Simulated assay, not measured.
Amino acid sequence: MCIVKSAIETTPDDIDKIFSINFKGTFLADIAAAKQMKKQDTLGKIINCSSIAGHSGFGYLAAYSGTKFAIRGLTQALAAELAPKITVNAYCPGIVDTDMWKEIDESLAPYLGVEKGQAFTQYSKQILMGRPQKPEDVADLVSFLASPNSDYITGQAFISDGGIVMN
């Protein structure tokens, strides 16, 4: 879930709602999964969804960025706690051409003083790979994290954004 508002317009109810959905929901799902995985005799894998907004704060996305930074911290803490039986990693997509970004664009446009559709275009120009991300690009990273090829990786938050945030 994403709330697009200036920080000074963001209400305590907005913060409660977005943290409840984005962070608390992830935390509780991770714990439920970890409890089940500990009963199994195979390597478990938890894969969390963060965002490039969890690596770099973006204007008008303060509450959203806060939840995504929190998910990165949760990912690291659980990786330290659950190893070596369970790996915990996160994927951090950028500007993905989805309905969610259409909603973000529509909400950002008034703040940026642009027409609907132009915020998406403006932010997409920052992508070094020359195009917005496709859902398949995100799925490829998640597939890798779920595969045996990532068995020795834990506590990481992988950016997949075509080169917007590089850290």
Rank of each mutant, 00 (worst) to 15 (best):
A80F: 13
F69P: 00
D99N: 13
P148K: 14
D16L: 10
K45V: 09
I31P: 06
Y60Q: 04
Q156L: 03
I86T: 09
F19N: 04
R131Q: 03
K102V: 11
D16R: 15
I8M: 12
R72S: 03
G162S: 07
S65H: 10
D161E: 06
A139R: 05
I31E: 14
A34N: 14
A7F: 15
L112Y: 13
T154L: 10
L28M: 14
L145A: 07
Q40V: 10
D140F: 09
Q133K: 04
G73W: 10
L128S: 14
D161K: 01
L108H: 09
P84V: 12
N167D: 12
D14C: 03
A146P: 08
S143K: 05
M1A: 14
A32P: 07
Q126E: 09
P110V: 09
S147W: 04
D105G: 11
F23Y: 15
Q156M: 09
E136H: 07
T75N: 06
V88H: 11
N89Q: 09
D161N: 10
F144K: 04
Y152L: 10
E106W: 08
N149Q: 13
Y60S: 02
G73E: 06
D14K: 02
A70H: 03
A63K: 01
D41A: 13
Y123H: 08
T11E: 06
V88S: 10
V4Y: 07
Q126T: 08
A83Q: 13
H55E: 03
I18A: 05
N149I: 00
D161T: 05
Y123E: 01
K45Y: 13
S160Q: 14
D151P: 07
G162V: 03
E106P: 01
Q156I: 04
T87E: 08
S6A: 12
N22Y: 08
V138G: 01
K24H: 12
P93C: 01
T42P: 03
S51I: 01
V138S: 02
Y152G: 05
N149C: 08
R131M: 00
A29N: 12
I46T: 11
R72F: 02
I46W: 08
I71S: 04
G130E: 02
K125D: 10
Q118D: 14
K68G: 04
K116E: 09
A157D: 05
P110T: 10
V4K: 01
S124Q: 04
F27W: 14
A7W: 11
N149E: 11
A33C: 14
Q40S: 15
T11D: 06
S56M: 12
G130Y: 07
D99A: 15
K68M: 02
D30A: 15
Q126N: 13
M166T: 14
S124K: 02
S20G: 15
A79G: 10
